[in-house]
Nucleic acid binder design. Structure first.
Lengths: 335, 335
DNA sequence: TCACCAAGCTAACACGCGTTAGTACCGCGG
DNA sequence: CCGCGGTACTAACGCGTGTTAGCTTGGTGA
């Protein structure tokens, strides 16, 4: 119950040096396996033993200070309310992978206050943002951030990350619906989401996919989050687009909202309307009927993001998108 | 498309000093409003102007190096897969609040590798963990971490954070079910979750709540994630506990799983089984029937967590739990 | 005139690390 | 005996802060 502050001081490389009876420099050479330096086996053994005994771990701050940039990656969270299960999965994955790459992930919510103050607090090696203005990106670069990557924005980097991915998603969705005989499609999204970059981008990809296959352009279906409103929005949308028989939902919530509205109207899926959602989740699997979803391979996606960022941090050319696209269909009963 | 590295160097306090025509020390005095130091109005003005012109932001690393600890709070993520919508909300809230408190939040996934190496990468001022072993906590304290807080563990700090909260949740759940006439209750949880500290802890709280009200102890209902298995588990559970008429679900997924199993068995909620879930979500509101849930006030919770941690970091006594408990019922149709 | 004080500012150190430029030692060919 | 090269190590610097001790300058009382 006490708020007592431990006075324990963590071990420094000087402590290790003292215990091993060598200089601090030698400790650094041993622990970093500095090439072109010859250390006798006996000395190396003593240093390692001392380090282990003191549970020595180098200070990231001091290291960053010397090198000029830290090993932390600043991740801007998506707009409020969109930290959902699937995004959570990717973040979890990213955390592990960055860890393995020797980087640590710092998370900040996306607020509109002067960006400088935010990244000043960490001096990140790279910034991974959900959606990034061009001038923000440029300002970050000018302040020494080595990698600036956005998931959805107009920055070139962004397309590397999610652009092709979004295209794959749209492709899988349309493919599944057309193979079931649906040609007139809709794009369903809930709440204020339709204003965000992600859904704009995905809607655009969907449009391109449809025109490239010679299908009519998809029709936007904007649903409120409450069940009652969903039914109303659904019936007016059907009245305006009588031919539409299949809908691509933006996420699990949108798919569930469509389902809920249909239930109120006495419609059944897929008989009256077929649904393909994006980002599989437990809620989607447990819905009635269980939802057919496009699953994003979070591991592939996360791995690629980490590969791009580590490359940028090291000044190497960024890798090309992996061949395995990472978007696959999970067939259930809503198509 | 180029991975070019910007050569731009960020401004340091020395740059500001040069531009303002004063010493670096004076710059530091002005920018930190160091008390007991007298700076002329004119000098102060020049320094502030120079700092603004250069868009100067102090280096967090250098500051941390001097002070001995950083301003970052290390947040251990819950075990894989449990980063759900509501937890996401809290994390989002935490990020904003820590930001306002001048702390930055670093996220690490919970892996079982030597903890030392993890927190060495950030030298955190505090650690906020989902579940923490006592010896891990002690080791962190010894290594200079000022605040060690766990959400669910046996650490005293943990009880400050979520202990009373869990108790409130259990209280609200039981209250709602008993007021609807249900006295024989169950506790539903999915997947491997029943092994984790959170659900153990909540089950325990539920048990205490029931005995304190003179009700029989709740019966654990463990559901697999797939719909089919849910139906089977549900019917054997009912066979073993024929009197049980109400169930407290651990989260949205558990509530949906119960619902899905009931659907397969031809049961209807609340007629055949009443359900109260925890942590309201959009999926719960869109279920059939819409689920009655206990909503955790994420803002109150997050605010309290931040208050405790900032107090610990500053060496002040931690505040008492706020009066508003932050757990309230969201009435829908499953009770 | 001298001592003294406050105001306003600066030199210099510490923080913990990586790294460059060295130093001491030793064996060996000339 | 001298020079040379390789091995094994160390002194010292810089990274950008915050902070302590001290330095000048001008004014004031004795």
């Amino acid at each position: 119950m006490d708020g007592r502050v431990s006075t324990a001081r963590r071990a420094t490389s000087a402590d290790v040096a003292r215990l091993a009876g060598v200089s601090r420099t030698t400790v650094s050479f041993v622990l970093n396996d500095t090439p072109e330096q010859s250390i006798s086996a006996e000395t190396r053994r003593r240093v390692l033993a001392a380090a282990r005994e003191l549970a020595y771990a180098p200070s990231a701050e001091a290291r960053a200070l010397g090198r000029g940039h830290s090993t932390s990656v600043l991740l801007y969270l998506p707009p409020a309310g969109s930290l959902t299960e699937d995004i959570g999965d990717i973040i979890e994955r990213l955390s592990v992978l960055f860890d393995e790459a020797g980087l640590s992930m710092v998370i900040h919510a996306w607020t509109r206050r002067p960006a400088a103050q935010v990244w000043s607090s960490v001096t990140p090696a790279a910034v991974l943002a959900w959606d990034l203005e061009d001038d923000d990106a440029e300002r970050m670069r000018r302040n020494g951030v080595r990698g600036v990557v956005s998931w959805t924005g107009s920055d070139v980097m962004g397309r590397w990350i999610t652009g092709p991915r979004e295209q794959d998603i749209a492709g899988v969705q349309v493919q599944r619906l057309t193979s079931a005989g649906h040609t007139h499609l809709g794009y369903a999204v809930t709440g204020g989401d339709h204003m965000h970059g992600v859904s704009q981008w995905r809607f655009e990809m969907l449009r391109r996919e449809c025109t490239s296959r010679g299908l009519p352009a998809p029709r936007m279906l904007h649903l409120p989050a409450e069940p009652g409103g969903a039914a109303a929005a659904l019936s007016t949308w059907r009245a305006e687009n009588p031919a539409a028989s299949g809908v691509c939902a933006h996420d699990t919530t949108a798919a569930l909202a469509v389902l809920s509205g249909m239930r109120q109207l006495g419609w059944a899926a897929p008989r009256d309307l077929a649904i393909v959602g994006v980002n599989d989740s437990r809620a989607a699997a447990l819905a009635d009927p269980p939802l057919t979803m496009v699953a994003l391979d979070t591991d592939v996606t996360a791995r690629y993001i980490v590969a791009v960022i580590t490359a940028l941090v090291q000044g190497a050319p960024a890798p090309r998108l992996p061949a395995t696209a990472g978007a696959s269909i999970v067939d259930r009963d809503s198509v």
